[in-house]
């Protein structure tokens, strides 16, 4: 993989050049004390050492609400609506990049979802090696500490004011040349980046899965009837926060809206969550997952088994957002998987 060196003082020029044709978002601290991707305004303070972006970056490729079709109420003709603004997300941590790569695969699978795919195609992702690890994060123990694809450029801070930038796509490389041409990285600079990654990954590994994450689907398969599901879900508020903050959750609802004159309208999708009571509720009041236990277990099976069975990756990238979002303090995949491991016999 090609790699370049970029010095900090060159960044404003690069950012300004990119922001001309694309909506550029950068990580920044919010007044509330969180971190968020905010639009680049020419001078925003970049939070290089952020630990976790508050909202999952899936919103860039699958907004919380997105129009899918427009229709005419008179002749009932409908047209697809594709919105795919050119955008660059700078500074995404690898686990979040991985989450988006999963969505890429799932949206392509079977009947491709062009609304997603077009938006994704117009999105440039610049990964950033983390310098801090959120208290609740465990990405290094689920194989999400580094990514090999899914990014256009991959930035790693290797000195007080210098970055090694790995190239993931042609588009990424072109963007890097948008201002003055960057210099190629030397062998020792590449080594410095490798060490920077190892260092943070080692630190992140303090939150340990007790087994190799690839065993998770088999662990779950054996534990459908574990008492853990009931015990943990007893205090679930069915608030759906764990779904909303999860970078790999993509379930949605469809909603119609019409204009005041009742002539035209749109149908949009909006994020939904399998933890909400209404998720599997049908007309006539039959609920296919009536109990908190059913919903709670389904969520962990999706993360740990169903997604894996589809694409060979764990559907949880260990960002730790759900752990933080859950007021009942029960949404912790690491704790769930470890508890199941501890209570199971391991005659695989």
């Amino acid at each position: 993989m090609d790699a370049y060196i970029v010095h900090l003082e060159r960044l404003p020029a690069l950012f300004n050049a990119w922001a001309k044709d694309s909506a550029l978002s950068v990580p920044s601290a919010t007044p509330e004390g969180f971190y968020e991707f905010i639009p680049w305004n020419g001078e925003a303070e970049i939070a290089w050492d952020y630990d976790l972006i508050y909202n999952p970056p899936k919103r860039f490729v699958m907004p919380a609400k997105e129009t899918l079709i427009s229709f005419d109420l008179k002749d009932l003709q409908a047209k697809p609506v594709f919105e795919a603004p050119a955008q660059i997300v700078f500074g995404m941590h690898p686990y979040d990049v991985k989450a988006i790569s999963q969505l890429d695969q799932l949206m392509e699978l079977g009947i491709p979802d062009q609304n997603y795919l077009k938006r994704r195609e117009a999105t440039v992702i610049m990964a950033l090696t983390p310098q801090s690890v959120a208290e609740t994060a465990f990405w290094a123990s689920v194989g999400a500490e580094e990514v090999q694809h899914g990014f256009d450029l991959y930035w790693t801070k290797i000195g007080p004011a210098s970055f090694l930038v790995e190239v993931g796509s042609k588009k990424g490389e072109e963007l890097l040349h948008a201002a003055a041409p960057p210099t190629r990285a030397t062998v020792s600079e590449k080594e410095a980046a490798r060490r920077a990654k190892i260092k943070v990954n080692q630190f992140a590994r303090r939150k340990q899965l007790l087994y190799n994450w690839e065993e998770t689907p088999r662990l779950l398969a054996k534990n459908w009837d574990s008492p853990l599901w009931r015990k943990n879900s007893e205090t679930c508020l069915a608030c759906g926060s764990c779904n909303l903050v999860c970078p790999t959750c993509y379930c949605f609802d469809l909603v119609d809206e019409v204009d005041d004159k009742l002539e035209t309208g749109t149908r949009s999708r909006s994020w939904d969550g399998c933890m909400l009571t209404s998720f599997a509720l049908v007309a006539g009041d039959h609920n296919f997952r009536p109990k908190a236990l059913d919903r709670y277990r389904h969520r962990y099976f999706r993360k740990g088994k169903y997604i894996y069975d589809k694409i060979g990756e764990l559907g949880c990238v260990g960002c730790g957002r759900c752990v933080r979002a859950c007021t009942a303090n029960i949404a912790n995949p690491l704790a769930v998987f470890n508890a199941l491991w501890e209570e199971s016999t391991h005659a695989f």
């Binding site: 009947i111 949605f252 939904d272 998720f279 169903y306 069975d309």
Partner: peptide, 24 residues
């Protein structure tokens, strides 16, 4: 089998029976 359905094309997640999409 009947399940809640929204998208009908295996994306929205509403119709799942374990990891099966009832719609597809």
């Amino acid at each position: 089998l009947e399940r809640k359905m929204k998208c009908g094309v295996g994306k929205c997640g509403h119709c799942m029976i374990n990891d099966l999409n009832t719609c597809m």
